[in-house]
Lab assay of single mutants.
Amino acid sequence: MATVKFKYKGEEKEVDISKIKKVWRVGKMISFTYDEGGGKTGRGAVSEKDAPKELLQMLEKQ
């Protein structure tokens, strides 16, 4: 499965596409929420050019 690499609050993070719950576009950025486990929801964003094609496909399906 594909992963998304991004920075959040200065920390490098990587999340599996299957854990992503919601995806939306903000200008040229793709924002998303994902399941961190333990009932927590994380947030992240990547630029449109750095987003994996699976993430862009999720955006188109909504």
Score class of each variant (00 low, 15 high):
Lys21Trp: 15
Gly38Ile: 10
Glu36Tyr: 07
Gly42Met: 06
Met58Cys: 13
Gly42Pro: 07
Ile30Gln: 00
Gly27Tyr: 14
Met58Ala: 10
Met58Thr: 04
Arg25Pro: 03
Val26Lys: 14
Gly10Trp: 01
Lys61Phe: 12
Tyr8Glu: 04
Phe32Arg: 00
Glu36Pro: 06
Thr41Gly: 09
Ile20Met: 09
Thr33Gln: 08
Leu55Lys: 00
Ile30Pro: 00
Met58His: 08
Gly38Tyr: 08
Thr33Asn: 12
Ala45Thr: 07
Val23Thr: 13
Glu48Pro: 05
Thr41Arg: 11
Ala51Asn: 03
Phe6Ala: 01
Pro52Lys: 02
Phe6Thr: 01
Trp24Phe: 06
Asp35Pro: 09
Gly27Met: 14
Thr3Trp: 02
Val15Met: 02
Lys28Gly: 12
Ala2Ile: 14
Phe32Leu: 06
Glu48Met: 04
Gly42Cys: 08
Val15His: 01
Met29Asp: 11
Gly27Val: 06
Val46Phe: 02
Gly44Tyr: 03
Ser47Gln: 09
Ile20Trp: 01
Thr3Leu: 10
Lys9Phe: 04
Lys5Leu: 03
Ile30Val: 09
Lys19Asp: 12
Lys49Ala: 12
Ile17Gly: 02
Thr33Ser: 10
Lys40Ile: 15
Asp50Leu: 14
Ile17Asp: 01
Lys21His: 14
Asp50Val: 06
Asp35Arg: 06
Asp16Met: 12
Phe6Met: 01
Gly39Cys: 15
Ala51Glu: 02
Ser47Pro: 14
Val15Ala: 04
Asp50Pro: 03
Glu48Tyr: 09
Gly27Thr: 11
Ala51Gly: 07
Glu36Met: 12
Val46Cys: 07
Lys9His: 10
Lys28Ile: 05
Leu56Met: 11
Leu55Tyr: 00
Asp16Asn: 15
Gln62Leu: 11
Phe32Thr: 00
Ser18Phe: 15
Lys22Tyr: 15
Leu59Val: 09
Met1Tyr: 12
Thr33Gly: 05
Ala45Asp: 15
Val15Gly: 01
Met29Pro: 02
Gln57Met: 14
Ser31Gln: 08
Lys19Thr: 09
Gln62Glu: 10
Arg25Phe: 07
Arg43Phe: 10
Lys13Met: 11
Met1Trp: 15
Asp50His: 05
Ser18Gly: 08
Leu59His: 05
Lys9Met: 12
Lys40His: 15
Ile17Glu: 02
Ala45Lys: 06
Val23Asn: 01
Lys49Val: 14
Asp35Ser: 14
Gly39Asn: 08
Gly38Cys: 15
Lys49Gly: 09
Gly10Phe: 02
Ala45Phe: 14
Val23Phe: 07
Gly37Arg: 08
Val46Arg: 02
Glu60Val: 13
Lys13Asp: 01
Gly44Ser: 02
Asp16Ser: 09
Gly37Tyr: 07
Gly38Val: 13
Lys7Tyr: 10
Glu14Asn: 06
Gly38Leu: 06
Lys7Gln: 06
Gly39Phe: 11
Thr3Gln: 03
Met1Lys: 10
Gly44Trp: 03
Met29Asn: 11
Lys7Val: 11
Gln57Tyr: 14
Ile17Thr: 05
Lys40Asp: 11
Met1Gly: 15
Val4Asn: 00
Lys7His: 05
Ala51Lys: 01
Lys40Met: 13
Ser31Val: 10
Thr41Tyr: 11
Thr33Glu: 09
Gly38Ala: 11
Glu54Lys: 04
Glu36Lys: 08
Ala2Glu: 05
Tyr34Trp: 12
Asp16Gly: 07
Glu11Thr: 04
Gly38Pro: 10
Ile17Arg: 02
Val46His: 02
Met1Arg: 04
Lys13Pro: 00
Arg25Lys: 12
Glu48Ser: 06
Asp50Gly: 08
Ser31Thr: 10
Val46Leu: 05
Glu48Phe: 05
Leu55Ile: 10
Asp16Val: 09
Ser18Lys: 06
Glu48Trp: 05
Lys5Arg: 10
Glu14Ala: 04
Glu12Pro: 04
Gly39Trp: 06
Ser31Asp: 06
Thr3Met: 04
Gly39Thr: 09
Lys61Ala: 13
Met58Phe: 05
Phe6Ile: 03
Glu54Met: 06
Glu12Trp: 14
Glu12Arg: 07
Ile20Val: 05
Lys5Tyr: 03
Gly38Gln: 14
Ala2Cys: 15
Glu11Leu: 04
Lys19Gly: 04
Met29Arg: 08
Gln62Ile: 09
Thr33Cys: 15
Glu12Val: 10
Lys61Asn: 10
Gly42Trp: 12
Gln57Glu: 06
Glu11Pro: 01
Gln57Lys: 07
Glu12Leu: 13
Leu59Cys: 07
Lys28Arg: 12
Asp16Tyr: 13
Thr33Tyr: 11
Glu12Lys: 06
Lys21Cys: 15
Gly44His: 01
Ser47Lys: 08
Pro52Gly: 05
Val15Ser: 02
Gln57Ser: 06
Thr3Glu: 01
Ala51Arg: 02
Glu12Ser: 07
Asp50Gln: 08
Thr41Ala: 10
Tyr8Cys: 15
Arg25Glu: 04
Lys13Ile: 11
Met29His: 11
Gly38His: 10
Lys7Met: 05
Val4Glu: 00
Glu12His: 07
Glu11Lys: 05
Tyr34Met: 01
Phe6His: 01
Glu60Asn: 14
Gly42Phe: 15
Thr3Pro: 02
Glu54Asp: 08
Lys61Trp: 14
Val23Pro: 02
Lys19Ile: 09
Tyr34Lys: 00
Leu59Ser: 09
Ser31His: 14
Lys61Tyr: 07
Leu59Pro: 02
Pro52His: 05
Phe32Ser: 00
Glu11Met: 04
Lys40Gln: 14
Phe6Lys: 00
Ala2His: 08
Asp16Leu: 11
Ile17Met: 07
Glu60Met: 12
Leu56His: 11
Gly27Cys: 15
Gln62Trp: 03
Val4His: 00
Gln57Ala: 12
Leu59Asp: 04
Glu48Gln: 06
Lys22Ser: 13
Ile20Phe: 08
Val4Phe: 03
Ala51Trp: 05
Met1Cys: 13
Ser18Thr: 07
Glu54Cys: 11
Val26Cys: 15
Arg25Ile: 08
Lys9Cys: 15
Val23Gln: 03
Val15Ile: 11
Ile30Trp: 03
Lys53Pro: 08
Lys40Cys: 15
Ile20Arg: 00
Lys9Pro: 01
Gln62Cys: 15
Arg43His: 07
Glu11Val: 04
Val4Thr: 01
Val23Ser: 09
Arg43Ser: 06
Lys61Ile: 14
Val15Gln: 01
Glu48Leu: 04
Ala45Ser: 12
Arg43Lys: 12
Leu56Asn: 05
Tyr8Asp: 09
Ala51Asp: 02
Gly38Met: 13
Ser31Ala: 14
Gly10Asp: 07
Ala2Arg: 08
Ser47Met: 12
Gly10Thr: 02
Leu56Ser: 05
Lys7Pro: 04
Gly10Cys: 10
Lys13Arg: 09
Gln57Arg: 05
Asp16Ile: 10
Tyr8Thr: 03
Val46Ile: 08
